[in-house]
């Protein structure tokens, strides 16, 4: 059941069109991630949902209510800011109690709800500290508790892990995912980190220049990217210019493609390619240009004469050295069915 619906949202900042007809629907109790590079409009879209940005066109719906024209303080939308925006003049308990105080909730009930919210994020021991005396991870948890204590219908998080160091980031991502599942709140994340999107979300909306490029589960988007942009943004991908004739990609061996004849683009993940030494036989011919042993795998760059080298990841056997640079090799797809054939190439070519 759709819980949050953003319908054809348009927003211009001066002459710049930041959002160009964005539509996203999020099911109740699921986590959606808006993924895209900086400047693609993902934060603006989130701010539209919270009411900080008034869209020029389009509607915002939460549940069966149209909230497009509601001011931010009348929306039941929890928001976790990028740098948390905790009130520095209030201690942790007062920060969490803020929303309850402005709603004139009774003293005893406020205390009880604040205690529960702080328990939820394991910060009960820090109730009387000022935010400046907390670590980044603790500040983030206060920000989440402050939003959750109001039992909002939806939770919005704007790059919540940006301010954390890499090690803390992963553990907080998992913690937050567990918390969201426990509470069962519909959530939307904004991030530019594809790994974070994979870890946290039920569904991912990839954004590009104010438009939604593709929406799907992380696996769908990884396996079946609809454009070369999505393929390159989620994980790594080789995008090759190829020709399609009679329902097959002209290559050796040929790959099935349900596309009309003509030029097309083939997307192949590095781990779906394999290479064999020797210049004779089927496959793309090239020479090893670079190799990086990664422990369990070896990553190769193979120069084939195309502008971009082919990236190939192969499993490494114990004691096996990588092929030396300059070795002539043949590259083939491990599973041709896992390759994706697209009509549009990188940058809409």
């Amino acid at each position: 059941m759709t819980h949050i619906a953003l319908d054809a949202i348009v927003k211009n900042f001066g002459a710049v069109r930041v959002l160009d007809g964005c539509s996203v629907a999020v099911d109740k109790g699921t986590v959606m991630t808006l993924l895209g590079p900086s400047g693609c409009g993902k934060t603006t879209l989130l701010r539209t949902l919270a009411g900080f940005v008034e869209p020029d066109a389009g509607r915002v719906r939460v549940g069966d209510r149209d909230i497009t024209d509601l001011p931010p303080n009348r929306r039941q939308v929890g928001y976790v800011f990028q740098s948390y925006a905790l009130f520095p003049h209030l201690d942790v308990a007062a920060n969490v109690a803020y929303g309850l105080r402005v709603r004139r909730v009774g003293r005893a009930e406020t205390q009880e709800r604040v205690r529960k919210a702080l328990d939820l994020v394991s910060l009960s021991a820090f109730a009387d500290r000022y935010p400046a005396r907390l670590s980044g991870g603790q500040q983030q948890r206060v920000a989440i508790a402050r939003a959750m204590v109001l039992e909002p219908e939806v939770l919005l998080l704007d790059e919540p892990f940006n301010a954390l160091d890499a090690k803390l980031r992963l553990s907080m991502q998992i913690e937050l995912r567990k918390l969201i599942e426990r509470v069962g709140i519909t959530s939307i994340f904004v991030t530019h980190d594809q790994q974070e999107a994979m870890t946290l979300s039920d569904r991912v909306a990839v954004m590009r220049a104010g438009r939604i490029e593709q929406v799907g589960t992380p696996i769908e988007i990884y396996d079946r990217p609809r454009t070369a942009y999505v393929a390159a943004f989620i994980g790594r991908a080789n995008v090759l210019a190829v020709d399609v004739a009679a329902g097959r990609v002209v290559a050796d061996p040929a790959i099935a493609a349900a596309r009309p004849d003509g030029p097309a683009w083939l997307v192949a993940r590095p781990e779906n390619l394999t290479l064999e030494p020797g210049g004779e036989g089927a496959g793309w011919r090239g020479t090893v240009a670079f190799s990086t042993p990664q422990g369990a795998t070896i990553e190769y760059e193979v120069a084939t004469g195309a502008p971009e080298p082919l990236r190939v990841v192969t499993l490494r056997k114990v004691g096996e050295p990588p092929l030396p640079v300059g070795t002539p090799v043949r590259v083939r797809a491990v599973d041709p069915a896992a390759c994706v054939v697209l009509e549009d190439g990188p940058d809409g070519a």
């Binding site: 919270a50 009411g51 900080f52 001011p71 931010p72 303080n73 009348r74 929306r75 939308v77 929890g78 928001y79 800011f81 740098s83 925006a85 905790l86 009130f87 803020y98 929303g99 402005v102 709603r103 402050r146 939003a147 109001l150």
Partner: peptide
């Protein structure tokens, strides 16, 4: 001043005056 604090306050349900 940091305007995000005011956005946070609005988001938590306070009025402009509040």
């Amino acid at each position: 001043r940091d305007r995000r604090l005011e956005e946070a306050s609005l988001n938590l349900g306070a009025s402009q005056t509040g």
